[in-house]
Each structure stands twice: as C-alpha cells, then as structure tokens.
Nucleic acid binder design. Structure first.
Lengths: 157, 157
DNA sequence: AATAGATTGTTGCAAGTGAAACCAAATTGT
DNA sequence: ACAATTTGGTTTCACTTGCAACAATCTATT
C-alpha cells in the first residue's frame, strides 16, 4: 500500500507546485479548450465582468498581471469583442477597460462550469482537509505578502 | 484594515494559483538566477541526484514531465555535463539517465539554499497553519489523483 | 519470418512569454 | 515655458512551450 516516496515527491515545494499545476490545468480545460481563453484572459474577464469600469493602474495592483501581460491579454479580449478599452480622458496614458455585454454573458456562461469543476475536485476531499487547505492557503498568502522578513536582498545598492 | 476582496481575489482557485506561482518563483530565484537551471532541469537533477540510474519510462511515471519536456531538459543537463544519458542495452528506445559527479555536487550546493528559502517562507506562517497547509495539500493531491469520479471523459472512443 | 501496430525519443512549427527597448503623455524642477 | 524625469502601454527580440509529425525500435499476429 504505502509505497515509499522519492525525496522529490516528498519535497513540499514540489508537491505544492504539482498540485497547483494539476488543479489549474483542470480548470483551464473548461475555459480554455471549450472557449479558447488563456488563463490571463480568463482572469481579466473575471475581474471586468464584475466592475463597471476599471482603469489599468487599478488593475495592476489587483492582479498578478504585469503591464505586458495586461496589454496582451486585453488586446486579445478586445479583438474577440469581449471587452472595450479606451484611453482615459483625464490621463491619456491610462486605459479604461469595460466588459461588453457579449463578454459578460460569456462569463456568465463559463463561470458555473468552472465552479462545478473546482467543486468536483474539492468535493473529493475530506471536509476537514478542505478547510485545512483553505486556511493554510490563506496564511501562506499572508506569509508571501509579508515584507520578506529581512532575508530577501543582501546586496547593498 | 480588512478591505473587501474582489470576487476574483476571493475565488479559491485563483488564490491557490497565485500562491503557488509566487512560491515557485521564489525558489526559482535560487536555482534559476544563480545557477541558470530551469524548473524542469532542477526537478530532473533533483531526482537523478538520489538514484544511481533511472530509465526514461520510470521517470515518466515519477514526474510530471512529459516526454518532450524530459527530452529537452535532459539534453540541456547533459550539455552542461550534469548528467549522462545513454541508450538502454535491452530496449534501445529507452534511455538511461545518470547523474555525474559534477551534477551531484552542484545539487548538493544548491539544495540547502532552496531548503532555506522554502523554510524562510513557511517560517513566517503560524505553526498550526503550516501543518494545515501540508495536510490539506496532501489530501488535495489524493483528490487530484483519484479516478476523476466520473465527470472527466464523456466522449466515447 | 514478415508485416502491422504500438511505444519511445526527437524535431519543426506556431503560439506564447519575459526582459529590455521604445514611444507617448504627464509631472517636476528650474 | 522648457527640459528632465517619471509613469504607462506597446513592441521587438530571443527564448521557451505545446502540439503534431517523424523516425527508430520493439511486440504481436499471421
């Protein structure tokens, strides 16, 4: 039964990365294969479908997308007619992103399927383990957000 | 303090992916920036540094690397002189991978640094949260490994 | 033994990605 | 008001990645 794991398989960072990879890929199958959205496009559409209008500088803070990814993903979404992007009137460097009706309705179509798939995976877990995972993840995110408690940059400028 | 999260930020799969991405990137900084190894190369070196000799078909099972990734990563590692790969005598389609002394000593040099970085991040978490994360992750991996309880493949062959 | 089929590793090509360069617009300092 | 710096978005270039075709080798069927 309990076959011994290789040291790599026992290595927590590896297990973490593998789990995340599989989980993510599982969901990508839903919005990717069927609807041709990349992960960045999906995230952006997700965000925009809820807000009326978001400026690019706001997005940069709220997402893990850097400006290059944002530029490319938004261009593709705009080409597909799912969002619009127009230059802001007050600051013409910025762009204002809006979800079109088409984009919003596509999101409404996809979202339940993604939820279902995620739920399907998590439902296979024990209830206690599920909450453990969620609380653990929340704390990990805090730890990753924390100001790198000193050990980050040893080189002087 | 507790600013309301956007629905995307509250979406568990998103949080999971972000956490994994940051965590992984943090470690990649160690073996990547300083030693020029890709994640696949690092994993392969990790695995090979422990075993005497591994055949490619074994590797396919034990890793998340598909055959293309394996071919490319192993070629690069071989070019750097960190591993050797020779065709198996009994089945000349297969290849046998071995870690060279150079590869093993490089691994021994990097591994503690990766451990240290991982520990540094996890140490910023509360102890309870840390074990919660680990048990949750273990159960999630089980759930992901599980025979996809029905909903996976609806297309008949 | 010979052909058909399956398995394995590599390669070619198109699409994607990251880092740096680049251009446009705004802000600051003089 | 003008030049210098800063900020934001796009583009370019080199490199990686995923998918599919490919060649090489083994297995099975006749």
């Amino acid at each position: 039964m309990s076959q011994t794991l290789s040291q790599l398989e026992a290595f927590f960072p590896y297990r973490f990365a593998v789990a995340a990879e599989r989980f993510s890929r599982n969901l990508m199958d839903v919005y990717g294969k069927s609807y041709g959205l990349s992960r960045e496009e999906w995230r952006l559409l997700f965000l925009l479908s809820q807000a009326e209008e978001i400026a690019s500088n706001e997005l940069a803070q709220r997402t893990t997308l850097d400006k290059v990814q944002l530029s490319r993903a938004s261009k593709r979404l705009a080409d597909k007619g799912l969002i619009t992007r127009e230059v802001a009137a007050n600051d013409r460097r910025l762009k204002l992103y809006k979800c079109t009706d088409k984009g919003r309705s596509l999101f409404e179509e996809i979202k339940p399927q993604v939820d279902a798939r995620a739920h399907e995976i998590l439902a296979a877990m024990d209830g206690d383990a599920r909450v453990a995972l969620q609380t653990g993840m929340r704390e990990l995110l805090k730890a990753l957000d924390a100001p790198e408690q000193g050990g980050e940059d040893q080189t002087a400028p």
